[in-house]
Design a protein around this nucleic acid. Structure first.
Length: 288
DNA sequence: CACTTGACCTGTCCGC
DNA sequence: TGCGGACAGGTCAAGT
């Protein structure tokens, strides 16, 4: 379930591997995963060269020298995995346990580059997509226009956080953290982690939070996201980075996926419940 | 209007 | 062992 840290990790990997490469072949087998007019693809992606890789919220942007861009949303099970021409798999491969042979049954799109290397867009559950649109049109997409601030950029001040969450005074704070128009990039894992770090129960209505609680939550959100990027993101089940490797943040997680294990602060057992229609992990002693 | 829930999907896990 | 159903969650549409 790629959130901001996972997409950021993929971005960093792709910057290393595919910038400067020319697309020689494009294959796809599932139109919903690749909802593009094939004549546009032929004109603006085929034989084009990748110039830069960007991220906004949970969206990855692959810019081409044709002045078109692929925008990719991995949703829950999407992966973008790069494989060089010379890589081999199976017994003896140094990353045998981390990288699997591709394509596989989850592969929806394959880009083959001029040097024979490949980028695979895999998506087991087919919720994700990879769209080709003019680069200049990205910022005017409705989805982009509604997005809230990037939590790790300077624009995301505690004052802006406070005023944005105030737009939903009666909603549960967890639901508000998941709202991409309030702030961009937080999903289920980091909502639970940051609320635990800030001692806040996920069902608390926004209007009941004190100014100091909002201030602490603002700080912990940033700290949790930064740590997660440093650890290469979280691999719950599916997520891998651009090299096909898993993230290690969940080894450091304090509540997520830790139901019935002791809270690292107080030792009480962490419970799992449902908030905002999401599995939610809480320490009932620390989080009030 | 404010907020919550269901649909989109498939693989995995649990209980019978 | 097989099978049915619950569950995983990002986003948008539909419902309350």
């Amino acid at each position: 379930m790629p959130e901001l840290p996972e997409v950021e990790t993929v971005k960093i990997g792709l910057q290393k591997f595919i910038v400067g490469k020319r697309i020689s072949t494009i294959n796809y087998d599932w139109p919903k995963s690749f909802p593009n007019d094939i004549s546009i693809v032929e004109s603006y992606a085929h034989q084009s060269t990748i110039t830069s890789i960007r991220r906004r919220a949970k969206i990855l942007i692959i810019d081409l020298d044709s002045e078109y861009s692929f925008i990719v949303h991995l949703k829950m099970t999407g992966q973008l995995v790069y494989i060089s021409q010379t890589e081999k798999f199976g017994a003896g491969h140094p990353n045998e346990s981390l990288i699997r042979p591709l394509p596989d049954t989850s592969t929806r799109v394959t880009l083959t580059f001029g040097d024979g290397s490949k980028l695979f867009f895999n998506d087991q559950r087919k919720f994700g997509w990879m769209k080709l649109i003019p680069t200049e049109a990205i910022s005017s997409l409705v989805f982009f226009q509604k997005l809230g601030p990037e939590p790790l950029e300077n624009v995301f001040t505690s004052q802006l956080f406070q005023s944005n969450i105030n737009r939903r005074p009666n909603a549960a704070i967890k639901a508000v953290l998941l709202d991409q128009t309030i702030l961009a990039g937080v999903g289920n894992i980091y909502a639970d982690e940051s609320l635990w770090a800030a001692y806040i129960h996920p069902t608390r209505p926004v209007k009941t939070l004190s100014a100091n609680e909002v201030l602490l939550l603002h700080k912990e959100l940033k700290d949790v996201l930064r740590l997660a990027i440093k650890k290469g993101g979280s691999t719950d089940r599916n997520y891998v980075n651009a090299e096909g490797k898993k993230g290690s943040y969940l080894q450091f997680a304090r509540v997520f996926r830790r139901e019935n294990l002791p809270c690292p602060r107080c030792g009480a057992l962490i419970i799992k419940t449902r908030v905002a229609s999401r599995g939610t992990h809480i320490c009932l002693v620390c989080q009030v």
